[in-house]
Computed example of a mutant assay.
Amino acid sequence: MLKSVLGASTVVTLGYGGNAAAASISCVAKVRDLASGGPPAGTAQFTMIEPKPTQAKTNWGWLRVDVRRYDLLKKGPAFDAFEAGGKIYKTSAPDVEVVGASLAKNQNGYPKDAWVLAYFDDSGALVSTYPSEQLAEPGATPAAQSCLASVNPGAVGNFTFGG
């Protein structure tokens, strides 16, 4: 009977147990359903204020990054920026890459802490961060703490969770 229902389809099993697989599919589907609120969007995926847990179940996973002083070819004033995915982004415009930036000579008082929204694959492994990723899609989706804990409990300790 199962064969007749599936026809010539191939059955693909996920690389983790049934309960975790169901949790993963459910978590990811909810995150990608923007009607349910979804994760922070746009430049709200970067913050200089440590994300704090909320009473809501939307305590998203954030990765800490270092903010340092940069300049452009020693011209103009130095500016605060962070590195993500091998590219430099100003804290004042965290979604726009700064091409040609290099570390400023004076780093007194730096680095400072900042956080970027983390993106995970369906197994709960980190695949990227904002601004390299900016929208939830298959293979790269933000995860709430409860979701990540159900899919990849070992990853939870590596992230800051907050709303």
Rank of each mutant, 00 (worst) to 15 (best):
V67H: 15
T58Y: 15
R64D: 06
P51G: 00
D71N: 12
G85T: 11
K52P: 00
G85W: 04
A44Y: 12
K74W: 03
P51M: 00
K87D: 12
P77S: 15
A29F: 02
R32Y: 09
R32F: 08
A81I: 01
V31L: 10
K87S: 12
L34N: 07
I88M: 03
K57W: 10
G38N: 09
Y70M: 02
A56E: 14
M48K: 07
A41R: 11
E50R: 11
G76D: 13
V67D: 11
I88K: 04
V28K: 05
G37W: 10
F79V: 00
R69Y: 07
W60A: 00
E83M: 10
S24G: 14
E83V: 06
R68G: 01
K52N: 04
G42D: 11
L72N: 00
P53D: 14
S36G: 12
K30Y: 14
T58D: 15
P40W: 03
G42M: 07
C27R: 10
I49D: 08
G76I: 03
E83A: 12
T54K: 14
F46V: 00
G86D: 13
P53H: 07
D71T: 06
D66K: 05
Q55E: 10
T43D: 15
R64P: 01
K30E: 09
A56R: 14
L34M: 08
L63A: 13
K52H: 04
I88G: 02
L34S: 09
G76A: 08
M48F: 08
R32D: 11
S36E: 14
A81P: 00
I25F: 12
A78K: 12
L73F: 08
G61K: 02
P40R: 04
S36V: 06
V31Y: 07
K52S: 03
R32Q: 12
C27Y: 14
A35Q: 07
D71Q: 03
R64A: 13
I49R: 02
G37H: 07
L63I: 09
A81T: 01
V65D: 08
M48I: 06
K74I: 00
L34C: 07
